[in-house]
Amino acid sequence: MTVLVAGATGTVGGIVVRRLAAAGVPVRGLTRNPDAVLPSGVEKAVGDLSDASSLAAVFAGVSAVQLFMNWEDQGAVVDLAVRSGVRRIVLLSSDGTPDEALERRVRDSGLEWTILRPGEFAANKIDIWGPAIRAGGPVREAYPDVVGVPVHEADIADVAVAALTGDGHHGRTHLIRGPEALTHREQIRLIGEAVGREIEIEEVGHDQARQDLIATGFPEEVADHILHYFVEWVDAPPVPVSLEPITGRPGRTFAEWARDHAADF
C-alpha cells in the first residue's frame, strides 16, 4: 500500500519521499505545484491541504500519510484519511508552537497516530544568517551567546520514516532536537569552518536585530516569532535529545549540517 507524503518538495518532506522510494516503499508525494519535479520512483499528486474536497483521489489506496502543520484547518483532511481507509497518520507538528487542535484531531481519529515535534531547524540558519555570510560581511546578532539545539532536517525525516513504516510509534509524541547544545557564536564558527573562512559577529540590540530580519525579507510577525525564542532561551535554554532509540543512529551534529550546506552560505 502507498504512503502519502504532504509537502513532498519541502525541507523535510523532500527527504522523506527520497528515503521511502530508495527503500522500495510505494510513495505518493503531494505538492501544490503542478510543475514540481519529484525523485524517480515517487508518484506526484497535485493538491492543497486547505481544500480536502479536492484530495479524494489523492488518498485512494493510501495506507499511511504524513501531514505537516501549516496553520490551516486540516481537520477535514484527517476525516478524509479516515474515510479513505488510511491506517496510519504521522503529523509533523512543532516543539515551540504546536497546533494543539490539529494534534487533538489526529489523536482522536482512531488511526495509528504519531506526532513529531521538531525544535529549531538548523536549516533556518540559511535564511537568518545566510544573506550576511554570502555577502562576506559580519553576522549581526543580538543574542550571540544564547544556547540552541538545532536539528538536522535529515534527522527529522529519519524519525518520520520510522514512524510511517515501523512499529512501536503508535500513540507516541516524539520530541526531535539536535544532539548538542551550542551558542549562536559556536554555530557561526562551525559554519565558518565549513565554508573555509572566519565569520565575524557584530553584536546589536534586539530592535536592530528585528529590523535586520525584516530587511532580509522576514514578515514582522515571523521576525518577532524568531526573536521570541531567543529571548526565551536566555533563561531557559532547550536541551539536546537523543534520537538513536528511534532512528538507530546518533543525531547529526551541527558541524555535519554546516558541511552539508556549505554551498548555501
Rank of each mutant, 00 (worst) to 15 (best):
F218C: 12
F218T: 10
R189W: 01
R19M: 12
D51H: 13
A209Y: 14
D264M: 10
F59L: 10
D51W: 01
L30V: 06
E232C: 00
A123H: 15
R28K: 01
G75S: 06
E232N: 06
R140H: 14
F218W: 15
M1G: 10
G166T: 09
P98I: 12
E220W: 06
F59M: 09
E220F: 05
S93D: 13
H170W: 08
V161N: 02
I89F: 15
A142I: 08
R177F: 00
A57C: 01
R105W: 09
G47S: 08
G148N: 15
V234E: 15
R134T: 05
L111I: 09
T9L: 13
F230S: 06
G119W: 04
R134L: 00
V16T: 10
A45I: 04
D108R: 12
R105I: 11
L175M: 10
G24N: 07
E202A: 04
V204N: 13
G13A: 08
A45Y: 05
S54W: 13
P237W: 07
R107C: 06
V151H: 05
I191V: 15
G85T: 13
A181W: 05
I156K: 01
M1I: 02
E141D: 10
G7F: 12
A101W: 02
D35M: 05
L213V: 06
A162G: 13
A154R: 14
R117D: 06
A223S: 12
A45H: 06
V46L: 12
R189H: 05
G47C: 05
F254S: 05
W257A: 02
I128V: 15
D95H: 08
E186I: 05
P34Q: 02
F121W: 11
T183E: 09
R88P: 08
V12P: 11
Q74P: 15
T31M: 01
A258R: 04
R177L: 09
R252A: 14
H228T: 15
V86H: 11
A263G: 10
V42P: 01
Y143L: 03
P219Q: 08
A36K: 04
S93W: 00
D158V: 07
I133W: 01
V239M: 07
